[in-house]
């Protein structure tokens, strides 16, 4: 049942990605609507998969890389749906959905067995800490994708290449706004994830902060986004500069999430 839900999700996301990528090159609005429908279906199945896993395992299914990547992908799709509805810009899907699919595909590479919970993770904090962290990451992922769209659109406007993709991409200020909104969601979530993690660490490991690689890199991520938000509010870092910083921020997020888990050993190395 669980495997079936997973592969169904994968199939629907692949279909949605194909539709959205063809929407990128073909000026057919119907493609955007089809993609929207597929994503809605995919999200529900994916949510079903996650809930089913929760029930089967009896704990929050974010305890290894397979589960984390899957939940990350789910959170990105959920965030995408919210922003897509709010701004009515189907083209967002052409940039975000392939990313969500890629992350879900990555999860296949890791053991998908439902393991008994690592005793260290047996805590009410597991849910709060991981869900907040991944919702935050998802907001950063959407900001990353939208920042790429911003750079493309800005390039089109500067170079006077006003083709069909230009027509489909949302206005610059809207892209800037979406990216900013994502950060204003993502940053508090990341902050609370770090705080809740510290509290949990105190109860589990006896210390709030132990400079574990995950903690260190989370802090670096936090500082980057803090700088970005601060720069924006004070001296007006917006537009291309903000877009580049958001892209950099997401690269660091990916490292904090994957690089640290795969390359460094520490307290957070859950495979």
């Amino acid at each position: 049942m669980n495997a079936l839900l997973f592969s169904s999700t994968l199939v629907v996301y692949v279909a949605a990605t194909v539709v959205y990528l063809s929407y990128l090159v073909k000026p057919r609005d119907v493609l955007g609507r089809v993609g929207q429908g597929l994503v809605a279906v995919g999200f529900l199945v994916h949510l079903g998969f996650t809930l089913n896993r929760y029930l089967v395992a009896g704990h929050t299914p974010i305890t290894n890389l397979h589960e984390s990547l899957s939940f990350f992908s789910l959170a990105i799709v959920g965030t995408f749906i919210i922003f897509e509805r709010r701004y009515r810009a189907a083209i967002l899907g052409s940039f975000i959905i392939p990313l969500a699919l890629l992350i879900l595909v990555l999860s296949i590479g890791f053991s998908n067995g439902i393991m008994p919970l690592n005793p260290a993770l047996k805590s009410k904090w597991l849910f709060v800490h991981t869900v907040m962290a991944f919702l935050g990451y998802a907001a950063f992922a959407v900001s990353f994708a939208v920042s790429i769209m911003y750079l493309i659109q800005s390039h089109f406007l500067k170079k006077r290449r006003l083709g069909s993709l230009f027509q489909k991409l949302p206005p610059l200020d809207i892209l800037d706004e979406i990216s900013y909104r994502c950060l204003t969601f993502g940053f508090p979530l990341l902050t609370f994830a770090i705080i809740s993690g510290a509290i949990w660490a105190e109860t589990a490991w006896g210390t709030y902060w132990s400079w574990d690689p995950k903690e260190t890199w989370s802090l670096i991520t936090w500082f980057i986004y803090a700088a970005l938000l601060h720069g924006r509010l004070t001296t007006g870092w917006r537009g291309r500069k903000a877009a580049w910083l958001s892209i950099l921020g997401f690269v660091i997020v990916l490292f904090t999430f994957l690089g640290v888990n795969l390359l460094m050993s520490g307290l957070h190395s859950y495979r």
Partner: peptide, 8 residues
């Protein structure tokens, strides 16, 4: 039209 593409 262009202004709308910049400012929304």
């Amino acid at each position: 039209e262009l202004a709308k593409k910049i400012f929304g």
